[in-house]
């Protein structure tokens, strides 16, 4: 049996991208929630993501790197079509990345400026990512309706990141800030539910391919498990945050796990809609793949190194377990 390398790399890229949206998603979400908190809370919020954000963003580099490496033809088409949103995202990521460092060292209005840039950068990057996703789903079709669709996806993704960020804070903070976070999580959940519903309804209209894939009885019945599971995860988050709000005994990780599950399920749905296309209706993973010699060489490296990456990522989360404390550098 020969290995279907493009398929293997699609799976690898999928894992990297999913890891990215969940991991950087929570820290982008925390960034977007900054204006809703007071100054002491803001310090705690930033402290809760300080040790992780850099590694989280590395998943984006890996995901894009794999796209570049394994599917060079698609990389050019996709990033060429998304040139401006990519630039907007990069500028957003840059601003918020350095704001982490600058805000703790600045005083007075400088600090306010970096707080604002941290929020702005997080928001700009999230919006741009959602917009790019929206354009991907419709295969970069021109026309007002398609652009509107991309904007709706962008709004939905921001809601998702806010949900992830808020549930992360539920896990990582205590007292008044945790209570606030529970409310933010519920707002985020409503926002996500609206977004997912809108996108789910709009996608079959926006793309004939997607419509054909999802509305094909009896397969549709099996596929309905995906939205049903998403609904269950949503209800799980709502119930868990409700119990935590009442002070009932519930695991503090439960809302975050539920939010991550919603992301994983939505990701699975999108992956199913797109597959086997990398550029919707235009280029499949096999058409876009790089030469096998390059892919095999990377596969060896990935097979050896990824377990180590997983191990020391777990180690890092173990070292920084528990509630966030202010006094970042001490």
């Amino acid at each position: 049996m020969t290995l279907d390398l493009p398929l293997v790399f699609t799976a690898l890229m999928g894992v990297a991208m999913l890891a990215y949206v969940v991991l950087d998603g929570y820290d982008l979400g925390v960034g977007m929630l900054m204006p809703a908190a007071d100054q002491r809370e803001q310090d705690l919020m930033v402290a809760s993501i300080g040790p992780f954000w850099d590694a989280n963003e590395t998943w984006l580099v890996l995901g894009v790197g794999l796209l570049l490496v394994a599917f060079p033809a698609a990389h050019g088409v996709i990033l060429g079509a998304l040139y401006l949103p990519v630039a907007a995202m990069l500028i957003g990521l840059m601003l918020r990345g350095v704001a982490f460092e600058f805000r703790v060292k600045a005083e007075g209005w400088h600090r306010e400026l970096w707080n604002w840039l941290f929020w702005f950068g997080s928001f700009l990057a999230s919006l741009a990512q959602g917009f790019m996703l929206g354009r991907m789903i419709t295969g970069f079709e021109p026309g007002f309706g398609y652009w509107l669709f991309a904007l709706i996806v962008a709004g939905g993704l921001c809601g998702g990141y806010v949900l992830l960020g808020a549930t992360w804070l539920v896990l990582r903070t205590e007292g008044a800030l945790q209570k606030k976070s529970l409310d933010w999580a519920r707002w985020g959940l409503v926002w996500v539910a609206l977004g997912v519903a809108l996108v789910s309804i709009a996608t079959p209209f926006a793309s004939e391919t997607v419509r054909a894939k999802w509305f094909d009885f009896p397969r549709t019945l099996a596929l309905m498990l995906l939205p049903l599971a998403s609904l269950a995860a949503g209800i799980w988050v709502w119930m868990a945050t409700g119990r935590l709000k009442r002070g009932a005994k519930t695991a503090e990780w439960a809302p975050f796990a539920g939010a991550a599950a919603i992301f994983a399920l939505a990701f699975a749905g999108l992956a199913y809609s797109l597959f086997p296309y990398l550029v919707m209706d235009k280029m499949t993973i096999w058409e876009a793949a790089a030469h096998p010699s390059a892919l095999i060489f990377i596969l060896w490296g990935a097979a050896v190194v990824l377990p180590f990456i997983a191990a020391y990522s777990v180690f890092s989360y173990w070292v920084f377990r528990g509630k966030a404390r202010a006094g970042l550098y001490d």
Partner: peptide
Amino acid sequence: GPLLAYEVLT
């Protein structure tokens, strides 16, 4: 590509 991928991974 592979050289860049190795940089990310290692």
